[in-house]
Design a protein around this nucleic acid. Structure first.
Lengths: 342, 342
DNA sequence: GTTAGCACTCGACGCTCGAGAGTGCTAAAT
DNA sequence: ATTTAGCACTCTCGAGCGTCGAGTGCTAAC
């Protein structure tokens, strides 16, 4: 439902003031900040109405008003306009991402660092889902007399390296054999199929050669597993320190939840493609009921891929957060696409 | 200076009680806990003496005693005995480290996770110093039509991968040429020598071939730079939340300091080989004056290498911290040595 | 050197009270 | 019908104060 212009103006002013100061907003302050040309009594009458309709609350009788979740929701849906990041801002984000383009995962790590830094909230990223990915190629690099590195390239662009050790002396010829045998065996195979039975039947098939194989087969299995699993990057967890509006026990629970890769990944897995704002108790997870969550998906090769997300106080600066999140998402997506191009 | 047996017993009991409860310890509690066969008045007399000698303080007149830094120092130097980690504990640590042995850095990351988890403090690790390291080998793995991964192996065991992109289509032959040219150029060269002038003169030397080289040369330069620089792993930064004995501003400053790779690396760089305990204001950095720092070096191939460290409250459990830190250090050092064996 | 006894100190806790901020209501003005 | 001035009201916050209890230091006796 649309609010009358003046009510909306007052609601907006309360929200923007409360976001920046954290203090309940009174009628007098409001006249200054919203540039209203009426008396404080009129504003108070309007606020009574906004309160009875559920957009505002008073922490106590003699305090100003603060927005309810419904108030934020109205603001987010009907009022807020998200300005794009400035050109300098975008250049800054792009160059920081390019500097750290060692791998898709390092780009995502840098993305979370940037988002956390620029929004002053906690940022998250998930790697592309590897459920339906297949092995594109396996390569080997010798690193020592008894050690080598397996490099697994998956069809979703994820690249995993894994060191392994053999009892015998590794030679280029042996790596050549590994390369040939394993690419024949694994190329085009789903990551999820590279499990213990697969490895065992492979070992059986290689016959006497399999004596040389246990280390490398384990390495491939583990690399495939970690390429398949969604992994979670985090940055700015310590910012949760400063969420003084929540009590210490709730913060602790929140931190424990956000530290758990599995929980975070399964929460994000369900998020849609578009930027989504979930305010306070709109969150399904109890740990998040005093926080807001903003998520978006980055695109790799034109397809929606992993998630970038921000967790912060309900009174976070939504416009700023969204513009930064979307800018980082676009830049990171395009750099990753460029980097993993077939 | 050695204290009389009973004084030492009382001091020890105060410290161990205070470490576990965080409450000032009174004379009555002390009789129970220390198993002393004297009256509370006698204990009080002894405590007056320990206080006047600077080992204990009273937060206020009618409170029990808490240890001073000098008290902790005496305890650490003269009383404390560090029991080795149990066999099961060591097995647990070893298996967790082996599971995550993708690279030397992932072992160190896992080491900090373990230390933080087991000590309930914040844990740090630095990678081996690359100052005097040289390039042992450079390899290439094709990842796409226009992209490839450079793998740089340094003499200190550090392995860095870096993706790069070329405008032209990459073929195995081109990577072969890169491999030959760059190993000829770089093998045995100090990491610190791979700088912009080096790259430029290299490009000049390759003549017309150099047109194909900018991407790969940049990748090598950046890989060498990051292999040379000491990088810092952290775990359990959110535990700093619970250091309630310090005020919020000081915690914030501490967090800012500990988040800065350069500051942390240069602090640890100076640490000796042996396990070192630095209590409160013994720390040279102001940010650390309300915390204690425990550091040790892990050994790679028999040589002291990077640092493992714990930052926690002055009233941390030193014996437990040290035994865990040393156990993880030994395990991580030997696994890294195994993994990077030439 | 040790102990019982005792007066003393000081923080924690709870209570009251005044100041100040901001309200809701009423009645008059537009 | 809307807006406004005026005013009584409510509630938080902080200061000030007394009580309670833990734990002390001192003294005199053992």
């Amino acid at each position: 439902m649309e609010l009358a212009a003046r009510k909306q103006k007052i609601l907006t002013a309360v929200i923007e003031n409360y976001i920046s100061t954290g203090e309940p907003v009174g009628s007098k302050t409001l006249i200054e900040k919203a540039g209203l040309d009426v008396s404080s009594a009129t504003v108070r009458n309007e606020m009574v109405d906004l309160t009875s309709r559920g957009y505002l609350v008073q922490p106590h009788t003699s305090a100003g008003r603060i927005p309810t979740e419904q108030g934020y929701r109205y603001y987010v849906d009907n009022v807020m306009s998200v300005p794009p990041v400035s050109n300098e801002g975008r250049d800054f984000i792009e160059s920081r991402l390019y500097e750290n383009a060692d791998s898709p995962e390092s780009i995502l790590k840098t993305a979370t660092d940037l988002i956390s830094e620029l929004t002053d909230c906690t940022a998250f990223a998930t790697t592309p889902n590897g459920e339906n990915s297949r092995i594109r190629k396996i390569s080997f690099v010798q690193t020592g007399a008894h050690t080598a590195m397996a490099v697994l390239i998956a069809s979703n662009g994820i690249i995993k390296t894994k060191l392994f050790r053999c009892e015998f002396i590794i030679t280029p010829e042996i790596l050549e054999i590994f390369d040939k045998a394993l690419n024949e065996l694994c190329a085009g195979v789903r990551l999820s199929s590279i499990n213990q039975p697969f490895i065992q039947s492979a070992a059986a098939r290689f016959g006497e050669l399999s004596l040389f194989m246990p280390g490398v087969l384990m390495a491939i299995k583990e690399a495939a597993l970690s390429a398949e699993q969604v992994s979670v990057c985090r940055s700015g967890m310590t910012k949760l320190l400063f969420m003084t509006q929540i009590n210490a026990v709730a913060i602790r629970r929140l931190v424990e939840f956000l530290k758990n890769d599995h929980d975070v990944a399964s929460l994000f897995e369900r998020q849609p493609i578009d930027t989504t704002i979930t305010i306070g108790s709109e969150n399904s997870r109890v740990e998040l009921v005093s926080s807001s969550l903003v998520t978006t998906r980055y695109f790799v090769d034109g397809n929606p891929s992993g998630v970038l997300a921000v967790v912060g106080p309900v009174r976070m600066n939504y416009t700023r957060t969204i513009s930064i999140l979307e800018c980082v998402s676009e830049c990171a997506g395009s750099i990753i696409s460029e980097l993993i191009e077939i």
